[in-house]
Nucleic acid binder design. Structure first.
Length: 141
DNA sequence: GCCAACGTTGGC
DNA sequence: GCCAACGTTGGC
């Protein structure tokens, strides 16, 4: 069964545009140092799962693009940590900011909106994914 | 830049 | 195994 995820990145470090311009529009998601997020990547991510790409710690935090999982969890070299590969699939013409997320009552269950939700990889429901991607008017790449 | 919330560390 | 101290995240 296909699953849906939200993945956070600080745009100053690695934005959705960075991903869209990367070779094959693909990157390895290295550097996660949280066990819960690591376990999601290692145990639950499957090829074909879809991703909301979220910009955190910035003005206008929110969802800027869509991506898909193209390689399932594999170890970072010489470490207990783990990463996946994701590929950009669509840029959102109208990024879905936190304000827009919060204004939509259908999305009030989203983990990213909860106070103190620091987890950098979060599950989202198929409905949430559909609603957010429709709001964003995706331009498929 | 502030600071609340959270995860991790480490002394005991 | 408890829990205080610490470092980090991330919204504002």
């Amino acid at each position: 069964m296909k699953r849906y995820w939200l993945m956070k990145s600080e745009p100053d470090v690695f934005s959705f545009d960075h991903l869209a311009k990367a070779p094959k529009r693909t990157t390895s998601w290295e550097g996660v140092r949280n066990y819960q997020a690591r376990n999601f990547m290692r145990d639950t991510f499957r090829k074909g799962d879809e991703v909301l790409f979220y910009h955190s710690n910035t003005e206008d935090a929110g969802i800027y693009g869509l991506a898909e999982v193209v390689r399932e969890g594999y170890p970072e070299q010489e470490s207990p940590w783990c990463m996946v590969d994701i590929r950009a699939t669509a840029k959102l013409r109208e990024p879905v900011t936190r304000a827009r997320l919060a204004a939509d009552s259908r999305l009030k269950g989203m983990m990213v909106l909860k106070r103190g939700a620091r987890l950098s990889i979060q599950p989202v429901t198929p409905e949430e994914f559909k609603i957010v991607s429709a709001l964003g008017k995706p331009e498929y790449l």
